[in-house]
């Protein structure tokens, strides 16, 4: 292994937690997210030469993850993707503090967004990328990014208000 490759791998390792979080926001599922990150790691290592040193490795990796996700969605067709997230997972049956209910509601609402909107929200709100960088990751104009973000936020507000109402009426 060359020193350059070792350095690249070390930086990749340090970014894995964020890639997993991004994957989780996109897929809503732990297993799917980790499969996605695995695919992205392999692609990143194969295409290491294409990464321009001096540019942000994180952005380059986000782009790979999101491309892998789009490929995956296309391959599967749209019938069975992004289900309600992790409902059989760790958040059921444990203490239901407000923070956890909140988080579960947000993840459910995220799963109902369309792919473009969910990707935009994942980059800007979950990963905290500036608009300019998120637009570069997606290779779209900033105006397109912000309009996706705006529509996504309206949707999320509406969905979360809806969940809140159904909780109050005990539905």
């Amino acid at each position: 292994m060359t020193p350059a490759e070792q350095q690249f791998r070390a930086e990749l390792v340090s970014l894995l937690p964020r890639l997993r979080r991004f994957g989780r926001a996109l897929t809503g599922q732990r297993q799917d997210a980790d499969d996605l990150v695995q695919t992205a790691i392999e692609r990143a290592l194969t295409r290491r030469e294409q990464w321009e040193a001096g540019t942000r490795l994180s952005s380059w990796l986000f782009r790979i993850v999101q491309n892998a996700w789009i490929d995956e969605v296309r391959a599967r067709g749209r019938r069975d993707r992004v289900l309600a997230p992790e409902e059989a997972g760790e958040h059921v049956g444990v203490s239901t503090t407000d923070a956890q209910i909140d988080a579960l509601a947000v993840r459910k609402a995220m799963a109902r967004l369309n792919d473009d909107q969910r990707i935009a929200v994942s980059l800007v709100l979950v990963e905290g990328l500036p608009y300019k960088e998120a637009a570069a990751v997606l290779d779209i104009p900033i105006g397109t990014l912000t309009s996706r973000l705006a529509r996504a936020r309206e949707q999320l507000q509406a969905l979360l208000a809806d969940f809140g109402r159904s909780k109050e009426t005990g539905r």
Binding site: M1, E5, R9, L12, V13, L16, P17, R18, R20, R21, R24, A25, D34, V37, Q38, I41, E42, L45, A99, D102, A103, L104, V106, R107, M110, V121, L125, V126, G128, R153, L156, Q157, L160
Partner: peptide, 30 residues
């Protein structure tokens, strides 16, 4: 708007603290 931003960020924040699956570490490290 602020509350939405906070809630979305907070919903996925715990992923960072999860133990890293060995297979991902092994792939990244080679």
């Amino acid at each position: 708007q602020r509350e939405l931003r906070r809630a979305v960020h907070a919903a996925f924040e715990p992923v960072l603290a999860e133990p890293m699956p060995q297979r991902l570490l092994a792939s990244a490290r080679g």
